[in-house]
Nucleic acid binder design. Structure first.
Length: 290
DNA sequence: CTGTGTTCCTGTTCGC
DNA sequence: TGCGAACAGGAACACA
């Protein structure tokens, strides 16, 4: 379930392993995921050390000691599994492993392994020279990171000015805010009490500044992502979990996948509706989201 | 430039 | 129980 909080959770879980020992060997079990693997992928990684594991939007970026960067995207169904060098962990893994869609295995010098599994193969891996990262076609157009200081009501107003697309579509657009997906857009709009159907530009005043409501949206986005990361972090502490996709936060969804449930907004008597926007499900409350 | 629809792929769930 | 249809967390790309 890789939106920003899930990718960040994965990053935190993988970082100690990736930056611990050098890469001894990397196996690919097929020639491509969404895209073909880069030429000589395994050879270019073997013997390298990962100096840092970062994240940009929903991309994981492993910086290598030779000036390249391994960029990884989980698509819709990608997940990583850690098999520690610890024999007990290996033993447990043997009982629960399902290797059907294991496409890449990273073998580290200390004996640890990290396996990338992706049934739908919408994920991909790239090798990009560090100096060209910012200009890479997949990363160059990305909008602001929603966590941290860059995302402000003023900045968002600038990006939404004149937009006729519905708020739902605008927030899913990675060129505006980088890292939101279907779940967290629904959740943030509900918390901000804004309708996903509203034209995005309506939240911007004539001078291009933020209207009332935009500050609330920014706060809701940061809040829901922050809470999700906290919850995801607590579930990833258990590395024996074979499927990195469960996270405790799914139990905290207020509207996502809750069609017909009573609206959780205090005092609201509405129910969660489900509509399609751009071919994807939107969950919201018509009564309190305006 | 902006907005919308299609497409990649497999697994799971739902209605008959 | 079986079986086809609908749907799933993303986003590049084509096109009006």
């Amino acid at each position: 379930m890789p939106e920003l909080p899930e990718v960040e959770t994965v990053r935190r879980g993988l970082a100690p392993v990736f930056t611990g020992s050098g890469l001894e060997r990397v196996e690919t079990r097929r020639g491509d995921l969404r895209f073909p693997f880069p030429p000589r992928f395994s050879e270019r990684l073997a013997g390298r050390r990962v100096t840092a594991l970062g994240r940009r939007a929903k991309y994981l970026v492993a910086t290598l000691d030779d000036g390249e960067a391994l960029v990884m995207h989980l698509g819709m169904s990608g997940s990583f599994r850690i098999d520690a060098a610890d024999p007990q962990a290996v033993h447990h893994r043997a009982a629960s492993a399902k290797a059907a869609h294991d496409h890449v295995v990273f073998h580290f010098a200390g004996g640890a392994r990290v396996t990338y599994n992706d049934p739908r193969r919408f994920g991909f891996m790239l090798l990009v020279p560090k100096a060209e990262l910012a200009a890479h076609r997949l990363l160059a157009g990305l909008g602001v990171e929603p966590l941290g200081d860059e995302l402000t009501p003023e900045r968002l107003a600038e990006a939404l000015r004149g937009r006729k697309a519905p708020l739902k579509a605008a927030l899913l657009d990675q060129r505006i805010i980088a890292g939101l997906g279907n779940i967290y857009v629904c959740e943030a709009l509900h918390r901000a009490r804004l309708s996903p159907l509203r034209a995005a530009g309506e939240l911007v005043d004539a001078k291009g500044g933020p209207r009332r409501g935009l500050a609330g949206l920014v706060a809701a986005i940061k809040q829901v992502l922050g809470e999700a990361i906290e919850a995801g972090g607590s579930s990833l502490r258990d590395h024996r979990q074979t499927d990195g996709s469960l996270g405790y936060f799914q139990h905290s969804f207020r509207v996502y996948d809750r069609e017909d449930a009573p609206c959780p907004t205090p005092g609201c008597r509405g129910h969660v509706a489900r509509i399609a926007q751009g071919g994807r499900s939107t969950f919201f409350c018509r009564a309190c989201q305006k």
